[in-house]
Design a protein around this nucleic acid. Structure first.
Lengths: 211, 211
DNA sequence: CTATATATGTACCGAGTGGTACGGATATAG
DNA sequence: CTATATCCGTACCACTCGGTACATATATAG
């Protein structure tokens, strides 16, 4: 999934590599790691879970990805760029605020219930709570969620400037509302909600319009 | 918090106890445990975190509460009955469907941002994801969340029968929508959203009315 | 060929996990 | 008093955690 033409994973490596070549596909291994983190969360995933899913040994994992936390961040980047995280950017490109919201909510409803991958959204499931040892991961996820909300708010501000949104509408509150619904859908999906359930939720959420 | 007149924690104990009396207050210790689980989740909380917060030794904890999972379930019961979980029952008692939803959403917005206790809702934060070892806890939380949604759905069915809700309204979808918003607010609160933020979200969520 | 660089598999490390054995302390029952 | 029941604190258990040392295998550079 999310195939990519990039061959070398490590940053800024020269064209011709010396030494013994890697025997596994780092992109595929990263996808496997993403899948496990997505399902069990950062702390719920053990190194053994990872190496078994990725089909590589511990030293290979550390050589290729640094450590558990760096691997998680790589998985998170991949999720954001090539995975469901990319629906945010797509939605923001819609011509009107209303269409942005429709696109975003429907895409999220579909994505969090997609049987091809674990239920929910990695940014929510990854580490909603954790031990103190994993606080940095939790903060990173919080930051990313806030960034998504900020981007949406800015899109609404633009819409307001364009007359696409009424003057008494608060872009901040509207963005918070929409993101709240998406995060709630992530929890619902992890609890077994179906795609039809969530699409009905989206229809109700959209009844808040016009805002 | 949530003071209770019950003195004996163990089930069905006779009035006069023999042996050395317990030196700690089991109710208070349970509240402390609840607080830690609430903040770090089931697996993010270690036995050491618990015993330090409760001010008791490991063997005392095991003698009084069985084991970590039983302690968690006790904390969950306490949360549901004496803590924020009780707002569900209160909300259901409102005379109209609309007022039920208003009450529930506003109460949750306040509760998940209450500075007196950890952010969010225990049923969401407790174990949204976990290792395979804690699957039973995750399932228990999922079950409790679903029960809350079922109760709300039944309340809406009653409202529909009473003519309080329009005939084309789906009680199931409406309940799913409302619970989705509450769960989203739990995630938002754990990400630092303020009470004002969430009350604005509630106002927008209520604009879906009339349903 | 040799030298160098990287990857791999085994086998291990210290620390932390949930959980408990056991002996001594403190209450009631008789 | 003794007997019994419960609690408490120390000190420990087996197990898993994330992470690594080291020897070996396999590639390129010269």
């Amino acid at each position: 999934m999310y195939s990519d033409s990039t061959k070398k994973m490590k940053t800024g490596r020269e064209a011709v590599q010396k030494g013994r070549p890697r025997e596994f596909d780092a992109e595929m291994a990263l996808d496997k790691a993403l899948h496990v983190f997505w399902e069990r969360g950062y702390e719920g995933t053990s190194l053994t879970d990872l190496t078994e899913a990725m089909g590589i040994s511990r030293p290979s994992l550390y050589a290729a990805f640094g450590n558990k936390e760096e691997l998680f961040r790589r998985a998170l980047d991949r999720y954001a760029e090539k995975g469901p995280g990319s629906v945010h950017a797509e939605a923001l490109a819609e011509p009107t605020a209303r269409k942005v919201v429709e696109h975003l909510l429907r895409s999220v409803a579909s994505s969090v219930t997609d049987p091809c991958h674990p239920a929910g959204c990695l940014a929510v499931q990854g580490a909603l709570t954790c031990s103190s040892a994993a606080d940095s991961v939790k903060q990173e996820l919080t930051k990313r969620r806030l960034e998504g909300e900020e981007n949406l708010r800015r899109r609404f501000e633009r819409a307001k400037a364009e007359g696409d949104l009424s003057p008494q509408c608060s872009p901040e509150s509207l963005a918070c509302y929409v993101i709240t619904v998406t995060q709630g859908m992530s929890v619902q999906a992890s609890g077994g909600a179906s795609r039809a359930d969530l699409l009905a939720v989206v229809d109700l959420a959209l009844k808040a319009w016009p805002v």
